[in-house]
Design a protein around this nucleic acid. Structure first.
Length: 284
DNA sequence: CTCCAGGAACTCC
DNA sequence: GGAGTTCATGGA
């Protein structure tokens, strides 16, 4: 991997096998959108556009220092994804899923945004999840101007949470999740849940802290552990993965116990099942 | 019209 | 500990 300053606030990440489309479109995040040129996204208060290159990508509206101090970790640039899922050639479905999703990187996302986003994901579809999150950001997040055309908003931070009421969440049209969002906000506000203090805890203890929030059960907790706390060993089981397990693996559900990279494997399977279904045989 | 979506809370037993 | 029901909203 090679990082080069191309000037005009454009940084090139080269010698890096990543597919921006698969990474941003595989269901792990909800705020990156393709504008015809690149993928526009906001993380924290940073609004950038990522443009796919042949063997890497360019990040626009950032600096070399910011790439080193932030984006390197966000995009998990120091992990070798090429060596994952290579030892399962007798598993045709997983081999196909891993080939299809080989450009995916598990993003290290903001804990608060991931918590609220996956509360919203409960019994919901991705298109509608994105809509609810966007309305949340436009209603309560700080404006970041319009560096790429459309006005962009940060995800609400702890300061923004102060002015939110239960009634004020109604325009999000989040349905029964509205009370769960409010419970998360209140716990964070009161200091009952300090999301940035959980990093040194065991995966089990972080999960327990997350599940103290109403609307956060095992699956939502696993997604937050995987996508915000870097716990790549957890294997979230949503309706798609349950379909993969019942249709492909049956009782032989060894995929859920892959060890340190189970979560990455899970994302390959999820992305593949959503695009191709589970109507494929497992054996070669 | 019914069925479904990156589920969880609740109520039974 | 499991099995079944309910929960808002919007698209297919």
């Amino acid at each position: 991997m090679k990082i080069t300053d191309k000037g005009s606030k454009k940084i090139l990440i080269d010698d890096c096998n990543i597919s921006l489309k698969d990474t941003f479109d595989c269901g792990q995040c909800f705020r990156w959108t393709f504008d015809g040129v690149g993928w526009v996204g906001v993380v924290g208060r940073k609004a950038v556009r990522c443009i796919q290159q042949e063997n890497g990508f360019i990040i626009e509206n950032t600096t070399l220092d910011e790439v080193e101090s932030f984006w390197r970790k966000y995009f998990d640039l120091d992990r070798d994804y090429g060596s994952i899922a290579l030892d399962f050639e007798d598993d045709k479905y997983l081999t196909a899923a891993a080939e299809f999703g080989k450009g995916i990187r598990i993003l290290r996302q903001e804990p608060l945004e991931t918590l609220i986003s996956f509360i919203i994901s409960s019994n919901n579809n991705i298109k509608r999840i994105r809509g609810i999150i966007n309305r949340f950001c436009q209603s309560y997040g700080k404006s970041l101007g319009s560096p790429f055309g459309e006005e962009l908003f940060a995800f609400p931070d702890t300061e923004d949470l102060e002015k939110i009421t239960f009634e004020g969440l109604a325009p999000l049209r989040a349905g029964f999740r509205q009370k769960y969002i409010m419970d998360a906000i209140e716990k964070v506000r009161r200091g009952e849940l300090v999301l940035d203090s959980l990093n040194d805890l065991s995966t089990c203890d972080v999960g327990a802290a997350l599940m103290s929030v109403k609307g956060v059960g095992q699956k939502v907790s696993d997604c937050i552990l995987l996508f915000a706390y870097g716990r790549h060993e957890v294997f979230p089981k949503d309706v798609w993965i349950k379909r993969v397990i019942s249709d492909i693996y049956g009782d032989d559900c060894y995929v859920a116990n892959f060890g340190e990279n189970a979560g990455i494997i899970q994302q390959y399977l999820f992305h593949y099942a959503r695009n191709y279904g589970t109507n494929v045989e497992k054996e070669p």
